[in-house]
């Protein structure tokens, strides 16, 4: 039963991610006074891409062909670990949050290799930029994770959420910093404005799109789908780690129902915040990104420090 539920939750992640992107795109179109596409447009795009013929360059090696599967597989594995509706599922014990960061790094590594595999200028440029951003985003993310782990005394996501739920509403300075830092890292890692613009192609500033420029057909569909799931994973991570209230702790129908409604509402709200911030903030120059990410790192570091200074070792 539990395994079935875990499978269901992963499926919800995988098949719900395009819907989240559709919702974000719809909000964004509305904020720019454009006629929005329906929210299921990403599904249509994916279906269209899956039906299209795959065109591959002559020089492409086996690496180029297997990369989409590795990227998609890594992201689905990550999605199965992150609690969406209910905590303490058997899959949550498979991997902790550090392994989760590792899975993302694995996907990125192969994507960067595939970008360089063909030998076009755009692929190499995108790969080098992606790795530059990742080398600064990952320490910040790990710092946020460590802050959380110090508070909950565990790196397991499900257990950490349970600990935070159990303690109730506690104002933790470290969580404020870690949440802000993690959100900034999430923006950088999922390639949203101000770090990368997901809506443009063939622009000199693109990062993620430049790497996957040579992909087409079902390969492109898999990579795009993986990117959508990644966006949702980051959203759920931020929401369920720092605001876990509403998530089901037992597998009764009632709790599950409440859990799904709450996470839906939270994700819709987070999407709204993302869209507002993307409307207010302009895309950054590439050379400003290190500054942005070092600020995120500083925030996460301050989170860890304020945990040690203000919260830890507090004995009445």
């Amino acid at each position: 039963m539990d395994w079935l539920l875990a499978l269901l939750q992963t499926a919800l992640f995988v098949f719900g991610a395009p819907l989240l992107l559709g919702w974000i795109k719809r909000l964004k179109a509305l904020s720019q006074n454009r006629q929005p596409a329906p929210v299921w447009q990403p599904y249509r795009d994916l279906r269209r891409l899956f039906h299209k013929e795959v065109v591959i360059a002559h020089h492409a090696s086996w690496l180029f062909r297997i990369t989409p599967y590795i990227v998609f597989g890594a992201v689905v594995l990550v999605a199965s670990v992150v609690p969406l509706l209910v905590t303490s599922l058997p899959t949550a014990a498979i991997a902790d949050v550090i392994v989760l960061v590792g899975f993302f790094a694995l996907g990125r590594f192969f994507l960067a290799l595939a970008g360089m595999d063909i030998g076009t200028a755009f692929g190499g440029m995108g790969a080098s930029r992606e790795m530059t951003i990742a080398s600064m985003a990952e320490p910040a993310m790990l710092m946020a994770v460590f802050t959380l782990a110090m508070t909950a005394s565990t790196t397991n996501l499900s257990t950490a959420m349970l600990t935070i739920l159990h303690e109730g509403l506690v104002l933790r300075p470290s969580f404020i910093f870690a949440a802000l830092g993690l959100m900034m890292v999430a923006v950088a890692e999922t390639g949203r404005i101000p770090v990368d613009n997901p809506a443009t192609h063939l622009e000199l500033t693109m990062v993620h799109e430049a790497m996957i420029l040579e992909y087409s057909g079902r390969y492109l569909a898999l990579i795009e789908w993986a990117a959508q799931i990644k966006l949702m994973v980051y959203g759920v991570l931020v929401l369920n780690l720092f605001f876990p209230w509403g998530i089901a702790t037992e597998t009764t129908t009632n709790a599950l129902l409440i859990g799904s409604v709450v996470i839906l509402a939270k994700l819709m709200l987070l999407a709204l915040i993302l869209v507002v911030s993307e409307t207010v903030v302009a895309k950054m120059r590439l050379f400003r990104i290190p500054q942005y990410l070092s600020f995120a790192f500083l925030l996460c570091l301050l989170g860890a420090l304020s945990h040690v200074i203000l919260e830890a070792g507090y004995i009445i």
Binding site: L171, I176, L299, L310
Partner: peptide
């Protein structure tokens, strides 16, 4: 707890 939060924000 709010004192701690404000102190952390001051540090920020």
């Amino acid at each position: 707890q709010a004192i701690f939060v404000l102190a952390a924000l001051l540090l920020y």
